[in-house]
Design a protein around this nucleic acid. Structure first.
Lengths: 216, 216
DNA sequence: ACCTGAACACCGTTCAAGT
DNA sequence: ACCTGAACACCGTTCAAGT
């Protein structure tokens, strides 16, 4: 956006933009207008260049997204882990994955869509792996615990980050349950007809999964 | 596909197709060539009609997909639940969700992409809810148990159904871990550098989650 | 009621050409 | 080395028109 003195001023046809500028603007686009706003044409327009200029610098849409995810990944890396017991610290590290996904909703959704979730969360997964080892697990045991916890986090993130407003009311879970006449207790139907508080169900579930893997 | 005697033969411009025919061909398209193959133009070509004919019958792509998911949903409904204890039967019902998702990979992926997962799995979720009630839970407790278990299943499905072949090798989890130099035990790195056996991690995790909710 | 032809407003990507 | 103009092969969707 800012065209300062350190940049070569627009001489002739040179735009004075590099790969990093494109990634930065792409990131801004995703965060301000959602993953769907990131098209090559839209990005080019935002940069005041032709689509092909974007291609020349970043190669393809997939490469652009990978670079964008890598950038955000390193920015997300630093989070503190609290707690004194092993279980508390593992739980805290797992919560960091959850929290940073929420703090970066749009980018996380983009990563889910493009299969780059592992890339985005890797630094936080490494931190979680460290706590799992500190709890006394290594090798296959540590891998099992890590994968079990990460899939649990991922499952709740899918539900919690989904844009429900994009789905017609009658196709959402509460509507489906309120129409269900299958001999279930009315109190159960009533509870399931309310929107889910993903965060609180997550906390309960994470506790059970951590306890199953990390010795007390 | 088969144009039999019960159908009105192609008189003039009438194609003799109805909404159900379109959904059936769309389903076949998704299962044989994947969710991405389901475009309105491709479907029209498959039916030997114009795109607009498809629109006239189904309304829009979203409506077509909702109808397709509903169709498969009722077909997926019938699965047996085994086990004698409450925990075994709840686990069995949860496994049915997992198994039928695998038996319908392409449709399940399409549902994930379009936010219609709840619609697709609803009959199997009802069956799971029944087992949870049979275990003695109702109301909020039953809802919590159901959501906790379903999110767990969902988390593993996202990982297990993802088409890894569409992701460059160097962006997949094993490659990321094999490049990680972060003071972790070499045995842990080695274990994480291998592809995940989602099914076995799932079984372990499900056991922990079920045990946390369903009394023994 | 059911279907077509033509168009609108988009996509990602590539090619030949300019400076 | 860096950038443009034009094009290819797609999308979902809509409109006016035909029978």
């Amino acid at each position: 956006m800012s065209q300062n003195a350190t940049h070569a001023v627009n001489t002739g046809r040179r735009a004075g933009l590099d790969r990093a500028d494109m990634v930065a603007v792409a990131l801004h686009l995703v965060e301000s207008e959602g993953p769907a706003a990131l098209t090559m044409r839209r990005l080019a327009a935002e940069l005041n260049v032709t689509t092909n200029t974007v291609y020349w610098h970043v190669g393809s849409r997939d490469e652009l997204i990978a670079e964008l995810i890598r950038t955000r990944s390193t920015q997300m890396a630093e989070r503190e882990i609290s707690g004194s017991t092993a279980r508390q610290r593992v739980t805290s590290a797992a919560h960091n994955v959850w929290d940073s996904a929420f703090a970066n909703r749009a980018v996380t959704s983009l990563a889910h869509q493009t299969g780059t979730t592992a890339l985005l969360e890797h630094p936080l997964e490494v931190a979680l792996a460290h706590e799992i080892e500190a709890a006394g697990l290594t090798g296959e045991d540590a891998a099992l615990a890590l994968r079990s916890i990460l899939s649990t986090v991922g499952g709740f993130l899918v539900g919690a980050l989904r844009d429900e407003s994009a789905i017609p009311t009658h196709l959402r879970a509460p509507a489906l349950w309120s129409m269900t006449k299958a001999g279930l207790d009315p109190a159960t139907i009533a509870a399931l007809s309310e929107p889910t508080d993903h965060a609180s169900v997550f906390v309960t579930t994470l506790e059970a999964v951590v306890a199953a893997h990390i010795p007390a």
